[in-house]
Design a protein around this nucleic acid. Structure first.
Lengths: 412, 412
DNA sequence: GGCATAAGTTCATCCATACAACAAATGGCG
DNA sequence: CGCCATTTGTTGTATGGATGAACTTATGCC
């Protein structure tokens, strides 16, 4: 990040010089991405048709990907059509995997995904990590990761990297954790503490915000069908948020974007004692307003609401309205056409929907032309772990040749 | 915008196949951008050193740019240093220009910039366009543009395109204007209406939001010194906003991003009648609160404040606090480290600063690690016109070969 | 069995960049 | 004043990667 040469306004993504090698890297990544993201196996000819590359070029690229152990061929399928049958290409299984890890308020876990996005192995442990000791917790995480990694190497699967999800502000990629209010952590050198347990074989893990990674998993789950741009809000103990644009996480300058939980609302005319979204729609706030103890599980809250318990219903109305107003603010600023409710909000969605959509319809300036759609998360349980592994796999797909062999990366 | 093939999460910018031609285009744009953005003329060798390309390659690229009329050589300068003197390269003057146009509430104008970013010619007319007739106003704009274009062609300057700034929501690039509240326009086919006057020689003008373009001009003015990422708020009759990330305008999916004027604030606990930022910090709101007529010029307001007139001071305190709270929301969502006040806010900056920074310090979650900085606009008068021309020039810089000769673009 | 069709491969060609050698233009120094 | 070091810009040749056309392989259809 040293070069800050200005341009005529915009700085292009591929800011550097393009050599022929860049070209190979780009097209290699392009074909691998096609193979990985295809809903049904593609042939070399399919890829050529879709990308505009010639069959000859695709053939050469695919051969290289097969040699790298990233793509595999299936048996040719007789298509019921004239012509030589196509050879279906699929992401290779059992050769590489990435680790998604997570420390959250009431659980901790490790999940390994292969290139196809399938779970290869995982370990999750419940616990209570409010006001916990980072060293102790990360120790426990590292041991958990150790068992998963042992399993992988026993199966001959190469580990390409790992990413740790944390419910707080993470500085850049390798920097320290700045603040995780619900864990009670502040300025913790997570990577340094994990370095004592070289579970990734020396590769330092990436760090990221839990909501950002959950949103990444969500984007992956919707890559074929759903909207490519959306705001993701997850109600956990805190309120997390992330923005997805064209399938990519938008984290802002330092990856601290999407902090929707701290949007200011309800200010009583004076802006000094205004509450944030978490004060209206955080788990604790909802439960307090509903007259339930703080430790009440979401299912119990849901039951209370469905039993038409008035205080519970009122609490959700307040939460929904605040959530809708905050989301409207976000949508006005970043202009997306879709909102995805995750975490607790997904469970409670049917009881939030009316208030949320009402606020969106009322407050989003572009609503008259394109109403903001609302849906619930599809990414399954522990989406941040999935997202962490996907983040690593994405980096691999972007530069398939870079991960081994060619460059001396020292993957012991 | 048809291809929506999903990836492993992210969709890369250069989504298509890369041919050798893409490579040439990229590097051609890279060297042209270096020349255009350099604070002091660079030599071929300088560019080679900065980009990593070889001197031979840069030489070839520069020769092509000279042939295209986009770059010019100056006389070699004796540097007082051993070795052959370098040939300084500068953006060509007087060969190409782009048009920035603007229709706003109380003026309308056209400005032509050359590749060096200098004003070649401009015409600005005052007026009152509240509740105006689009056909009539655009007619007037077109005639104004006509005189500027005539001047350019008399001087032998080729017009590469134009961009029109409007104070409202513009759909995508070529789509219609959706809503410009302060003009009283709604769903106006601006491009269609302008087509009657082919001032651009048949090239349809691009449309964009006024604040987005002003922010682009601001980013250009700060490209060498200032922050590459910031939130820009301009107080005009309405409150406009835009987000700049790494020097590029972030307009969201449809270019409707940055609508900071409609962020919800001050909701009194009930989210139904809450006011937006414009209700606290819009020009009309400030003047009303100050007890001044709506038509009061900003200078008069400023004079009242500096005369310590209590109602005026109170009005600015409210505006500053609301502005700060709204900006804090935006910063929490998009994570930028800098805020730029433009338009009226720049004039009033010294009387807003305390309240704005106070709110930012209080409400931005990352403030303890990196305080949000505040500064006033540097882009000069009518920044949106400058930004519009710059937007066109940027497109030219991104694909220098594409604008003429090679492709049959029909620039009559 | 012959023909049309489609997939995948082989080979000559092209294009843009890298690399190396060279020419040009200057300052420094004896 | 002449030689050398130094830096710029140019001129080849080599290289890597994509292209395009021809060819091989494997199927369905008549």
């Amino acid at each position: 990040m040293s070069a800050r040469a200005g341009h005529l306004g915009a700085r292009r993504a591929g800011g550097g010089a393009a050599r022929q090698q860049s070209l190979r890297q780009h097209n290699l990544g392009l074909t691998l991405r096609r193979v990985v993201d295809a809903p049904t196996p593609l042939s070399r000819a399919d890829i050529a048709g879709a990308t505009g590359l010639t069959r000859a070029t695709v053939s050469a690229l695919v051969d290289r990907l097969i040699a790298l152990g990233l793509v595999a061929e299936l048996e040719p399928v007789v298509a019921g059509r004239a012509g030589r049958p196509a050879v279906p290409l699929v992401p290779a299984r059992g050769t590489v995997a990435a680790l998604g890890m997570e420390v959250n308020v009431d659980y901790l876990g490790v999940r390994a995904l292969d290139l196809a996005g399938e779970v290869v192995s995982e370990r999750i442990e419940a616990g209570d990590f409010r006001a916990s000791d980072p060293t102790e917790v990360l120790d426990r995480l590292a041991r958990l990761a150790g068992t998963v990694v042992a399993r992988l190497s026993a199966d001959g699967v190469a580990l390409v990297g790992g990413c740790l999800a944390l419910p707080g502000l993470v500085d850049s990629v390798t920097g320290p954790l700045r603040l995780a209010p619900n864990l009670g952590w502040r300025d913790v050198d997570v990577v340094g503490l994990l370095a004592a347990h070289p579970v990734l074989g020396g590769l330092p893990p990436r760090l990221a915000n839990e909501a950002d990674l959950a949103a990444r998993a969500e984007a992956h789950a919707r890559r074929l069908t759903g909207p490519a741009s959306f705001v993701y809000v997850s109600g956990e103990v805190g309120v997390g948020g992330a923005i997805v644009l064209d399938g990519a996480i938008f984290g802002g300058r330092r990856g601290w974007g999407g902090e929707i939980g701290h949007v200011v609302l309800g200010t009583d005319g004076s802006f000094d004692q205004g509450g944030t979204l978490e004060d209206y729609a955080g788990q604790d706030a909802i439960l307090t307003r509903a007259g339930l103890p703080r430790s009440t599980p979401v299912t119990a809250l849901l039951a209370a609401v469905e039993a038409e318990e008035p205080r519970a219903r009122a609490a959700l109305h307040v939460a929904g309205r605040a959530l809708g107003a905050a989301l409207a603010n976000v949508v006005n600023v970043v202009d997306v056409e879709h909102v995805v409710l995750g975490g607790t909000y997904a469970t409670l969605a049917e009881h939030l929907r009316a208030e949320v959509t009402g606020q969106l319809r009322r407050r989003v300036i572009s609503a008259p032309w394109a109403e903001v759609e609302l849906s619930t998360a599809l990414a399954g349980q522990y989406p941040a772990m999935t997202g962490g592994a996907l983040a690593v796999l994405e980096a691999l797909v972007d530069d398939p040749a870079g991960w081994a062999g060619d460059e001396p990366v020292e993957v012991r």
